[in-house]
Amino acid sequence: MSLSFKRVGAMMLRYSYLLRASRTRILDMIYWPTVQLLTWGFLQTYLVRGGALAEPGGATQAAGTLIGAILLWDILLRGQQGFCFSFIEEMWSRNLPNILMSPLRPVEFVASLVAMSLIRLAVGVLPVTIMAIFFFGFNLWALGVAFAAFFVVLMFFAWSVGLLVSGILLRYGLGAENLVWSLMFCVQPLGAVYYPVTTLPTWLQPISWSLPPTYVFEGLRGVLIDHVVRWDLLAQGLAIDVFLFAAASAAFGLFLQSARRAGTLLQTGE
């Protein structure tokens, strides 16, 4: 069997043209290594400084905090993706124009996506919280009212991101599909998921405090380590949520109008 380097070069040239024509593909290649570096680099910084491990019983507290953070992060991520998956399935099936031409109002469409987000979340996360009890002795439900408050703040943020991403998909088609999976991970290193906000560089901390999940994960550490429910933090996170949800709803409406004017609703490819 002979190998033609000319034909191999031709295929490589084709793929390089694809990369050059799609900024989202290039960004995706840079994005994931950056997120991984920041997330685990800041966690290492927190552990090197001592953190909760330096205190008596700190290892147990740190383990519980880590498991709790993983579960809450999964709720946030699955909430956003559950919202977007229901939306993007309409694009995959080329059914979105039919829905938008029907008597269905945008607010009703969004309400159905919110409901499906909750259903998908229950199916995916509920068994995991039960497994955490049996395998690791960590009961997220035992947090009671605090857990309910965490859930509300996280879900409103998840729906805000889901609305924004869905609007972008409406306007720019499936070329922006990667945002469904990747955008929320941008929040992970900045949202103080696995370490306190004080671990971040000083110039990044204001950005962290502008994100509602930060208030939830700081609140989680307050409950598990200090045994105090920080209602002040949760109230601030909810206030930012209300603003972001309103802004995302307005952006969704603007993207929908723009898509109708540009005639992109019937062209949902890349």
Rank of each mutant, 00 (worst) to 15 (best):
S102I: 01
P106N: 05
P106Y: 04
P106L: 05
P106K: 04
E108D: 15
F109G: 07
V110A: 09
S112Y: 10
V114F: 14
A115G: 07
M116W: 13
S117T: 13
L118A: 15
L118C: 10
R120S: 14
L121W: 08
L121N: 11
A122I: 04
V123T: 09
V125F: 08
P127A: 11
V128P: 06
F134K: 02
F134H: 04
F135L: 15
F135C: 08
F138H: 03
W141Q: 00
L143I: 00
L143R: 00
G144Y: 01
G144N: 01
A146L: 06
F147Y: 12
F151R: 04
V152Y: 02
V153A: 06
M155T: 09
F156D: 11
F156K: 08
F156C: 12
A158M: 09
A158Y: 06
W159N: 00
S160A: 12
V161F: 04
L164M: 13
S166R: 00
G167P: 10
I168H: 07
L169W: 04
L169T: 03
R171C: 14
G173R: 02
G175R: 07
W181M: 08
S182G: 13
S182H: 13
L183S: 15
P189A: 08
G191F: 04
A192Y: 02
V197N: 05
V197P: 03
T199M: 09
L200A: 05
P201S: 08
I207E: 02
I207Y: 09
P213Q: 09
P213Y: 09
P213M: 13
Y215D: 03
V216E: 11
F217T: 04
